[in-house]
Design a protein around this nucleic acid. Structure first.
Length: 791
RNA sequence: GGGCAAGUGGCGGAAUUGGUAUACGCGCUAGUCUUAGGAACUAGUUCUUCACGGAUUGAGGGUUCGAGUCCCUCCUUGCCCACCA
């Protein structure tokens, strides 16, 4: 006899069922339904050339298990997948292999689809989206135009059309006296998408802009070329207008506290005061410095002023401060502005003013009051430049504010987001630059503005996008920057609701039906990027009546990273990358999915163990053998009381744990139940409940067994078992007996027994430990413990 | 420098509101079936001790009948932000 029958043949069953589910449209989402809705979403992947390693599917499997349980509980589940395919890697691939980035994307998407398919994820593939598809980025451009055409009304606390601002402004007399360009410049200061200038780290050697963490000791990390500051034209998103709403919106979200904290810190709201110091000795008449402080109560300790190099008062000192620009030593330096003094509002004393390298021009007012007695950094600076130190007499900030007329204000650390990349492979920004310096946005009917073909995807070396090298593009006056990677991912969750709509971002009916993402799953590394930008765009889309909820993601869970077996981050350079294809080939989809979830708590990082996965495979084989036994057993076999109790406990635990994303304990609960069944006996109907219970994890073996028991519809559409509290109650439980906190014995008690009887029996059991002492106190916690105190 | 997590066997980890710490799995040990083998089966496996017993959740202290869980001090590791006034 071959061993074939006693092992589950995953190589045959996995592909068979995967084909069948596609054919039967088992996981298709109903566009109309009377069922309750459930929108379960994964962060869509960037389809990289390397394909998936075993870390990637962890989140997908978790959300898939969750979606499957919800589907079986009778929800109409929306569980889609797509690709976020614009971005640098595809462009670099194109540069290297001299092919269009679209080609790279096509090939990579194919690899991803095959891998996601072999993991058996229950996506409704008919809703697939790809951000590089013109039918998709048309709407990304459309939203950009809406942002360009909006301003933020701080009184109504929402975005409004720019034409309403023009109406307000045109009531002022001087508005008519402005030129078209001047009017545009004023409006640019209000638009939610606006053009501006920012200082960037420019590396002439690489011909590219670098992020702060790509610079080591003033040189580029890659190549070691010198880096300098350069002012560049950019597009920005006025996310700061939404700072307060982004902050307060966090309170109502079911997100990990750690992620909420990161966002709160990133927004960085602080409450303080703006204090005006009069300035004497300046050539500017009635000059003054406004500082922002959170410690107005220390005002009488102020002995100097520190301003940033960009502060108006520092203007004349620019040449001297220039050398600081490339100073990465972190040493605090200052230059005294000779002959100019600030006047302390209380003492009227003249205090010195320094241009410094440590005051940020982008935070607060770009000027700081120095209180050396109070602040260590101020003290260090005062000591270095021999500045007087005055002892602080703390005074109530509100009283000080009233006396010197300081305004209470809030300040945020968050800055407006740069919304431009000097790259080819991104969405074109749908605007024309006119000869007079004004801008004409494209009409909605002109969208999509298609990305043109170029001869070379190489960076131009001037910092401009390759689009700047296309004559016809430039001749039309089109913007040569493209949108950043986060543009298309900031609204894609709305597109899945109605992915083929040609008339709108998504139809009002679809938004009304799906509202928002109920459960979102993805990596914690997006805390201050995607997760913040998406909230911002969604709030804007809510303001203009497209989204129906202010927040896009009601519940969010983030998966921990899976490390290599050597406890290091998986990467080619360490040679510790584990490929899911090989695991699935050896152990099967079911064992792979179970192990991915069993490996540890969903949100913590853990190393992959090539040895441990065998445990999940053994589970699958044991279930297979057990099903053979049940098929052969008499139909009259009943479950023992213990098995029944265990089954219902497991139903409760599995249901609760999947709901709470405690997947590792779900798998151990399955194993405990299986151990219990193997020791005793189980009826066929109870065993079928067990099969339904494991179906979200072990997707194909459960389907095959379900079929073998004579069912003709999919186990994945079967009703989720419900827990019966009556069946859980066990006749008696064994509890411990403690004497002075130490465990000294145990006793079996029934739920009906009276407390005094139980204690009497317990005292008899531990009599030897009491000998010669008196019992001072006894505590009986029903079903838990008996505690005896002796002295 | 600031903020946030987390420290439990050889390993991954479990432990509802404080209530029998070490579930479940890997590995390991012994045995069974086998010509052989294991990705099979059975039994055992926190440490210490021949045993009775004793000890144990990073270290130390506290609250409590009872602490992995709560409080204080310290140590270690990881993550995020970082000249933020």
């Amino acid at each position: 006899m071959s061993t074939e029958n006693h092992f589950y043949n995953h190589k045959k069953q996995d592909p068979k069922w995967q084909k069948q589910w596609l054919k039967d449209e088992t996981y298709k989402t109903a566009q109309k339904s009377t069922k309750k809705k459930m929108y379960v979403l994964d962060m869509f992947p960037y389809p990289s050339g390397a394909g998936l390693h075993v870390g990637h599917p962890r989140g997908y499997i978790a959300s898939d298990v969750f979606a499957r349980m919800k589907r079986m509980q009778g929800y109409n589940v929306l569980h889609p997948m797509g690709y976020d395919a614009f971005g640098l890697p595809a462009e670099q691939y194109a540069v290297k292999h001299k092919v269009h980035p679209r080609k790279a994307v096509e090939v990579n998407v194919k690899t991803f689809e095959r891998q996601l398919g072999s993991i058996g994820l229950s996506f409704d593939w008919s809703r697939k989206i790809n951000t590089t598809d013109p039918e998709y980025y048309k709407w990304t451009q459309w939203i950009f135009l809406k942002l360009y055409d909006s301003w933020y009304d701080t009184k109504k606390n929402k975005a409004r059309p720019i034409k309403e601002l023009i109406e307000i402004l045109s009531k002022k007399k001087e508005w008519k006296t402005y030129t078209k360009k001047e009017k545009e410049d004023i409006l640019m200061g209000y638009r939610l998408a606006y053009q501006g200038y920012s200082e960037v780290n420019w590396c002439p050697g690489l011909g590219t802009v670098l992020a702060n963490d790509e610079i080591v000791d003033g040189k580029s990390e890659r190549g070691g070329f010198p880096v300098e500051k350069k002012i560049m034209r950019q597009w920005f998103m006025r996310i700061t207008a939404y700072a307060d709403r982004l902050l307060s919106g966090l309170d109502g979200l079911d997100w990990p506290e750690a992620i909420k904290t990161i966002q709160r810190n990133w927004i960085g709201k602080s409450e303080g005061h703006e204090v005006t110091f009069k300035v004497v000795g300046s050539i500017v008449e009635d000059a003054s410095i406004v500082v922002y402080t959170t410690r107005l109560d220390t005002l009488n300790g102020v002995t100097f002023m520190a301003v940033s190099k960009n502060h108006p008062l520092a203007g004349a000192y620019f040449d001297q401060t220039k050398e600081w620009l490339d100073d990465h030593t972190g040493e605090k330096k200052g230059i005294l502005i000779a002959g100019v003094h600030a006047i302390h509002p209380d003492s009227k004393k003249q205090i010195p003013i320094y241009v410094t390298n440590y005051v940020l021009s982008t935070y607060g007012t770009g000027a700081v009051m120095g209180v050396p007695d109070m602040d260590e950094r101020d003290y260090a600076f005062a000591e270095k430049y021999k500045i007087e130190v005055t002892k602080v007499n703390f005074e109530n900030a509100d009283i000080v504010a009233k006396r010197i007329k300081a305004n209470a204000t809030s300040t945020y650390k968050m800055r407006d987001a740069v919304f431009a990349r000097q790259r080819y492979w991104g969405e074109p920004i749908p605007l024309r630059h006119n000869a007079d310096g004004t801008i004409t946005p494209l009409k909605a009917s002109e969208l999509p503005l298609m990305l043109p073909n170029v001869k070379s995807y190489e960076p131009t070396g001037t910092g401009e996008s390759p689009l700047a090298a296309i004559k016809s593009w430039v001749k039309e006056g089109y913007e040569t920057n493209t949108m950043p990677g986060w543009s298309s991912s900031s609204w894609y969750f709305l597109r899945y609701m109605d992915p083929t709509n040609t008339k709108a971002v998504t139809s009002p009916a679809a938004v009304k039906m799906w509202k928002q993402v109920d459960v979102y799953v993805g990596g914690a590394e997006h805390a201050t990027g995607h997760l913040l930008y998406a909230r911002f765009w969604n709030k804007f889309l809510y303001d203009i009546g497209i989204a129906v909820t202010e927040e896009p993601f009601k519940k969010f869970r983030n998966q921990g990273m899976i490390l290599g077996p050597d406890n290091r981050k998986m990467s080619k350079s360490w040679g510790n990358v584990i490929n899911p294809d090989e695991c699935i080939d050896t152990y099967g989809t079911d064992a792979f999915r179970m192990y991915e979830m069993f490996i540890g708590p969903f949100d913590s990082s853990m190393p992959w163990s090539t040895e441990s996965i065998i445990g999940s495979r053994r589970f699958v084989d044991r279930v297979w053998r057990l099903h053979e036994k049940i098929l052969a057993q008499s139909k009259t076999v009943k479950s023992t009381v213990k098995v029944q109790s265990l089954l219902h406990k497991t139903i409760k635990k599995v249901t609760d744990d999947i709901e709470n994303f405690n997947f590792n304990t779900v798998v151990s609960a399955y194993m405990i139940l299986l151990n219990g069944i193997e020791e005793e006996s189980i009826s066929q109907s109870d065993f079928e409940a067990f099969i339904v219970l494991i179906a979200p994890f072990a997707i194909s073996i459960s389907e095959e067994i379900w079929k073998n028991f004579g069912h003709t519809t999919s186990v994945h559409l079967a009703a989720w078992p419900t827990y019966n509290a009556k069946k859980v109650v066990e006749e008696s439980v064994t509890i411990g007996i403690q004497v002075n906190g130490k465990l000294r014995g145990e006793i079996s008690v029934t739920s009906e027994e009276e407390e005094k009887d139980v204690i009497e029996k317990a005292l008899a059991i531990i009599a030897q430990h009491i000998e010669g002492k008196s019992v001072k106190k006894t505590i009986y916690v029903k079903g838990k413990i008996i505690s005896v105190v002796i002295a």
